[in-house]
Design a protein around this nucleic acid. Sequence first.
DNA 1: GTATTTGTTGTTGC
DNA 2: TGCAACAACAAATA
Length: 278
Amino acid sequence: MPELAEAEFYRKRWHQAAIKRRVAAVITHDRAQVFRGSNPAALRRALVGARFFGSEAAAKQILFRFHGPVGWMWLGVHLGMSGELRVEPAGYEPHRHDHLVLRLTRTTLVLSDLRMFGRVRFHRGTEPPEWWTNIAPAIHSDAFTVDAVASFLHRRARAPIKAVLLMQNRFPGIGNWMADEILWRAAIQPRRLAGSLRPAETRALWRECRRVARLALATIAGRGDYLPPDLNLHIPRSWLFWHRWEAGGLCPKTKLPLVREAVGGRTTCWSPARQILS
DNA sequence: GTATTTGTTGTTGC
DNA sequence: TGCAACAACAAATA
């Protein structure tokens, strides 16, 4: 599930349940692939007795900050294709796909991931780790300029624009559905080669990246302290989002049929009446 | 049994 | 060398 706004949704869900709370116990599914490259036993030892001191989301990743008997530590979560963060009652019994469970006094934080393309990272120290600080500048930041997009498209000139939008080192947090949403709004055909976009199209792409990122954050992750009860609950029907998987789905703008084909190795949905290959 | 899935990485080949 | 394409990872569902 998790792209940009979903990562923020899940971050906020754990944050609101756990801020300033102490971790009483940690359960890990040690052989789960989500721990590849990290040491779940060391993570358990360090987190027990630690207090939840804050969190951030960037791109598709989430960083939780703790302080405990061993000092400051950072828990990084990438939710992959099917990961989610839940809040369950105290005494919750972990299920098969619950790979990391933090027991607080009144609640239980659960990371579950069916397909295990997600990843849990752990770092001890006063400064955030490089796997966090190396994430590309956010789409809504000042560093995400139209010139930066244009030069990236120039370097990836022979790849379909759809595939380029999925590259995290320039478009952090954009995933399959956001990429389709952006191209549909910008009226650009997903198979167009990145190097073939005219300046006005590059500008439209840049603008819709920022707009979709901002709107997705507002509707999926809420504003201020507000956390929507369900993921995607507030996404308007006028978005491509709701129609892209429907059999016989129609373009919300033209009311003409949508098309689904693999582009850049991913299933891609677009509106041929609106997104013309030229 | 086959094909599908909102992601990333390593390998291959141009 | 740089870049593009693709398989692989894993598990459930249609």
